[in-house]
Simulated scan of single mutants.
Amino acid sequence: MAADGLKPAGPFSDAERAAVYRAIHERRDVRGQFLPDPIDDDLLMRLLGAAHAAPSVGLMQPWNFIVIRSDAVRQQVRAAFQAANDEARAMFPDEKQGLYAQLKLEGITEAPVNLCITCDRSRGGPVVLGRTHNRDTDLYSTACAVQNLWLAARAEGVGLGWVSILRDDDLRRILNLPDHVVPVAYLCLGHVRELYDQPELQARGWAGRHPLQAMIHNETWGD
């Protein structure tokens, strides 16, 4: 490494590059395939290390990780999910509600580890480099930590499911979060033997993936 901290950059080997893209394309939101086998501490720390290596604006690193194994806490979170999910189902048109009711949208009690990734909105003080004109970059940075964790989990053979149908107030109460800390992602983690070969919501007929070309604009919106 050079004295200025720089080192040569270049592409990965073909095998290394293929592994990165495989993790990206085979990542799944897991709800019902969790095995009861525990996640050992070394593996969990590797996953948290991957999350902690995420990019963050101004190097503020606004995330924290609440590791939850307690049955009592998980049962409280599941009850909160169920109440929110009953409300969510009623928001959809009648023709969608039947399919919605058949979808399994969480694995809170089945997964051996639950993890809440939070964002400390006071991290770095009142003025953070790169955050001066967009306060929400701390939330975006925390989302990057979630993605890092998700890809590392896939590489380790660990399934991960994001439980998004939860009220922030319920998580704050159950997890005793201070006012300046925002729950960004409530995740379920566990070993898996099988995964869907496509996103589960696509396999179940809820939605399909949009073609990439429809998402690309040149120079300005609409071009």
Rank of each mutant, 00 (worst) to 15 (best):
A72E: 10
R74D: 11
Q76I: 07
Q76K: 09
R78T: 07
R78S: 07
F81V: 13
Q82S: 09
Q82K: 03
Q82N: 14
Q82C: 08
Q82D: 14
A83K: 06
A83T: 09
A84I: 04
N85R: 12
N85D: 14
E87T: 04
R89K: 11
R89A: 10
M91L: 14
M91Y: 09
M91D: 08
P93T: 01
P93Y: 03
D94I: 05
D94T: 07
E95D: 06
K96T: 01
G98R: 09
G98V: 01
L99N: 06
A101F: 04
Q102T: 13
K104D: 05
L105P: 00
E106P: 05
E106D: 11
E106S: 06
I108H: 14
I108G: 03
I108Y: 11
T109M: 10
T109R: 11
E110W: 04
E110R: 13
A111I: 07
A111R: 12
A111W: 09
P112T: 08
V113D: 10
V113C: 04
N114G: 14
L115K: 14
L115Q: 13
L115P: 10
T118D: 00
C119Q: 00
C119W: 00
D120Y: 01
D120E: 03
R121H: 09
R123A: 15
R123C: 10
G124R: 13
G124H: 08
G125Y: 03
P126N: 05
P126E: 12
P126L: 02
V127S: 10
V127Q: 09
V127H: 09
L129Q: 13
G130T: 04
R131N: 12
T132S: 14
T132M: 13
T132E: 15
H133A: 08
N134G: 02
N134S: 06
N134Y: 12
T137Y: 12
T137L: 12
T137V: 13
D138N: 02
D138F: 03
A143Y: 04
C144R: 03
C144H: 14
C144Y: 15
A145P: 12
V146S: 03
Q147W: 11
Q147G: 00
L149A: 00
L149K: 00
W150E: 00
W150C: 01
A152P: 02
A152E: 15
A153N: 03
R154H: 15
R154G: 02
A155K: 11
E156Y: 07
E156Q: 15
E156V: 06
G157K: 11
V158F: 03
L160S: 00
L160I: 14
G161W: 06
G161S: 11
W162S: 06
W162C: 02
V163W: 05
S164L: 04
S164K: 05
I165P: 08
